[in-house]
Design a binder for these strands. Sequence first.
DNA 1: TTTGCCATTGTCCTGGCGGCCAATTTGCAA
DNA 2: TTGCAAATTGGCCGCCAGGACAATGGCAAA
Lengths: 207, 207
Amino acid sequence: MMGEPLLLLTRDDALATRWSALGAEWSLVRGYALSDLEPWRQQGRRLVLLDSDTLGFPAWSDPDWRERLRSIAVLAGLGQPDDQTGAAALRAGVCGFCHIYAPLETLEAALRVIAAGELWVGRSLLSRMLRGLLHGQSEPRSADWHTGLTVRERQVAGLAAMGESNDAIARQLGITPRTVKAHLSAAFDQLGVADRLQLALRVHGIR
Amino acid sequence: MMGEPLLLLTRDDALATRWSALGAEWSLVRGYALSDLEPWRQQGRRLVLLDSDTLGFPAWSDPDWRERLRSIAVLAGLGQPDDQTGAAALRAGVCGFCHIYAPLETLEAALRVIAAGELWVGRSLLSRMLRGLLHGQSEPRSADWHTGLTVRERQVAGLAAMGESNDAIARQLGITPRTVKAHLSAAFDQLGVADRLQLALRVHGIR
DNA sequence: TTTGCCATTGTCCTGGCGGCCAATTTGCAA
DNA sequence: TTGCAAATTGGCCGCCAGGACAATGGCAAA
């Protein structure tokens, strides 16, 4: 039950619930704002899991980030782990990033890596970085699958794209399965896809 | 209807049918064996779309490949576009590779690129190459999602992972939807997944 | 030849998914 | 204040997917 302290920084209670299963390996502490980072570091803690989706903080390009993240190991959960955002987050000083709704096994693996002082970078960004090296430029492509979607629709679409069922999504978000279907339908229309598999392919940059 | 000649090299009639839609941009010629490459080059043709799945040709490590592929632009369709296979194919001299059942838009884009003398390399390989550079070694991980699957099951699983419906798969393979379901069920059991979305995530290296 | 794997197809059935029509509440902007 | 957009939920209905149970023919190894 012990383990290194891990700060879960998110305003999304559903997300915090999802992350709470990490308690088996780390001592979880819930945070709600960026200002929680300062005391965390001063207490000698290092590990942080950061939700960049619901937190509504400054842009990654903000130079303040480097100071905020100094000497702490932050894993950033991104709504859309694409090249732009991921690279920006890395430049800002995070030690890694992954999908905001990544499976717990992935989060655990990533946290272990950054806890060991390494970097954890998703395949997506790596691919684009290398493509940029080869071709001299990187195309944004599917980086913005979520444009036109509302916040809630993004959440639902993100979970659906990770293989979650409507009921599971409903439970995690604390809403009715019916509402999940409503948001999903809206996302389908917006993205021009017919079902959740097509949506998943879109979200993950396939086709 | 004109356009640069493109050699479709496959023994899989269903695949050839699928590829036939490329006829809008290129003058398609069907090939059935590796020996068709030789006259193709001698006629001054360059573009080739190669099915490495059903062709049953020598391993990519075979040094003959470089000679066979000399001065022609070959896009290799791989059953499993992973780091091992992709890298080997590139070393063998192909100008690019992609999923054997990649959507036509992807094939078209790839063919245009290699027709222009560029390389077309999937994100998967790039990611792993860079990961190898960062960590000193590359883990096989999800590279072998197809182990334990029969040839037919791989075909079906591959198509399902690209978002095709059972009926669509049946039509493309010339079999009954019922048979597709049989192969899919077998694939589900083998891979330990419950539905086609989970299978897609597995196939594409997510989770 | 027997055994076993693979490909193929059939029917029945259940459950989840997605579409369609409709309603309420809340918060923000004109 | 009067909208308007977003979030929420309800019911109904049709379809496809996947599981259960079962069968046949081909082909290769033992």
